[in-house]
């Protein structure tokens, strides 16, 4: 009985050490890449820490979400949104056929909530990872690629996922701005 308890105690100790090590390893890695920890506390737009803005703009929703996932504006910097909206008649081979008013409304929503203004932890990490570049695809943002590096490319081709750009297929809380690992559920097919 006593021996069993000792083993249990040692077991718990080892387990907790392992958990701690992995957490620290992750932090160190982040530290290396992005300098020491930064807190992004700008305003209280978010429900909780680690939440991206909940997309609420009607024009952005109706014009963009028919074709692709409604990306949170804070996943790209202002300059990227400006470039994307400027080229809205040549949007990856499609003419979005936006009238002036709608185009302006979407642009102002996206730039007004871009990565520079986002208060989620991801906004800051995304900004740091892209440096001075202006990526046009969220799927090419170094930080986002890094976070998904362990997922095999085949997984994104599964029928219910479709492609790497369908964030909501696996990030079950995406509509609420939740991209935490805890709420990820990868469909099997």
């Amino acid at each position: 009985m006593k021996i069993e308890k000792t083993f249990l105690a040692i077991g718990i100790l080892i387990l907790s050490l392992m958990i701690n090590t992995s957490v620290f390893a992750d932090k160190d890695e982040e530290g290396e890449r992005h300098g020491r920890h930064e807190k992004h506390e700008k305003g209280g737009r978010h429900e909780g820490e680690g939440r991206a803005i909940v997309v609420e703009n009607a024009a952005y929703k109706s014009e963009c979400s028919s074709c692709h996932f409604l990306y949170p504006p804070e996943f790209l910097p202002k300059r990227s949104w400006e470039a994307l909206m400027k080229g809205s008649d040549k949007h990856f081979g499609e003419n979005l056929a936006l009238d002036d008013k709608t185009g302006k409304e979407i642009l102002s929503y996206l730039t007004g909530n871009s990565a520079e203004r986002g208060s989620s932890e991801w906004a800051g990490k995304i900004l740091k990872s892209i440096g001075s570049s202006a990526p046009l695809r969220i799927t090419e943002v170094p930080y986002i690629l890094k976070e998904h590096r362990k997922i095999k490319p085949d997984v994104f081709k599964r029928k219910s996922i479709g492609s790497f750009s369908n964030c909501g297929s696996c990030h079950t809380g995406a509509a609420q701005g939740d991209y935490e690992e805890d709420s990820v559920s990868i469909p099997k097919e």
């Binding site: 028919s66 074709c67 692709h68 479709g162 492609s163 750009s165 369908n166």
Partner: peptide
């Protein structure tokens, strides 16, 4: 249907 990025239509 499905869009080029795999979103259902």
């Amino acid at each position: 249907g499905r869009t080029p990025v795999g979103k259902p239509i």
